[in-house]
């Protein structure tokens, strides 16, 4: 897998909000096709910012990002041809589904991406039907997204990307606010995408999710740097590392027992 050409190549990337607040500090990372990479980090470590950089929504204040061998820059994305090609191949699910679901109905939401990217109407209708069916939300078709439950909103958010059928799925804290049944269903969904050869990059601090879906893990410190990357089992068993990065804690009542 590592011999394949990287889907994303992140070189010495830094990012600061308004030139003051550091979100990423000299990050190096390569993502290969078909991988299920987990970006593991505590709140505020820069995971979400990295996903927005990979999706070409923010641009690095230092370093460079390449996607499919091309630099992802503001200028490059101004070019219609590059923008369309990039957006068709990369999709991002935001952590807050209320941000992701901005349309007036589920149907409009799921049809939004393929319509914006210029697919013919018949093809859009076919994709919408297929996405709604795959996520078992046909009944929600005419509903307003703000009336849905957390689990339903997450399904609609995934359907809104499934209708685009991107090669790369960027998922930001996908298990947030989901009940155990929805979480389990989500894991199955992500594994299915992975089995279909999609590249999945998930930002999370959920160790259980990481254990279930990761083929590789990259750990972010609270100093916004990559402090470890590699085999999921090795990383998840390194309790000192997880503790240092605020990803696991020794509870006081457990220590007393020891």
């Amino acid at each position: 897998m590592l011999n394949t050409k990287p889907v994303f190549d992140v070189r010495q990337v830094s990012f600061e909000y308004e030139g003051k607040q550091t979100a990423l500090d000299h990050i190096d990372l390569s993502v290969h096709a078909g991988e299920s990479l987990i970006i593991l980090g505590a709140n505020g470590s820069g995971k979400s910012t990295l996903l927005k950089l990979l999706d070409g929504l923010y641009f690095p204040t230092g370093g460079e990002i390449q996607a499919f061998g091309n630099p992802v820059t503001e200028e490059a994305l101004r070019d219609d041809e590059f923008n369309f090609a990039f957006r068709r191949r990369v999709g991002l699910i935001f952590q807050d589904t209320d941000v992701q679901l901005f349309s007036a109905s589920v149907l409009d939401e799921v049809a939004f991406a393929p319509l914006q990217l210029g697919l013919p109407r018949d093809e859009v209708n076919r994709r919408v039907d297929s996405a709604l069916e795959a996520l078992r939300i046909e009944k929600l078709r005419e509903r307003a997204p703000h009336r849905l439950s957390g689990g339903e909103k997450r399904r609609v958010a995934l359907a809104s990307l499934l209708s685009l059928n991107p090669d790369v799925w960027l998922l930001d804290e996908p298990t947030t606010g989901l009940d155990p049944r929805s979480q389990s269903w989500l894991v199955e969904f992500i594994l299915k995408q992975r089995n279909e050869g999609k590249t999945v990059i998930t930002a999370t601090h959920d160790l259980t999710l990481a254990e279930e879906i990761a083929s590789r893990i990259c750990v972010f410190s609270e100093d916004h740097q990559v402090v470890a990357a590699g085999d999921p089992q090795e990383i998840l068993e390194d309790h000192d590392l997880l503790h240092r990065c605020n990803l696991a804690h020794y509870h006081a009542h457990h220590l007393e027992r020891i």
């Binding site: 927005k52 999706d55 929504l57 219609d80 923008n83 369309f84 957006r87 068709r88 999709g91 991002l92 935001f94 807050d96 209320d98 941000v99 992701q100 901005f102 149907l107 409009d108 049809a111 939004f112 991406a113 319509l115 914006q116 990217l117 210029g118 109407r121 859009v124 209708n125 919408v128 809104s160 990307l161 685009l164």
Partner: peptide, 21 residues
Amino acid sequence: LSSEVYLAMQSRGYRGAVVTL
């Protein structure tokens, strides 16, 4: 919220012109 929603729209191909079903 408005700036995040704009990013979400851009992420799914919005470039200033809206096409609807």
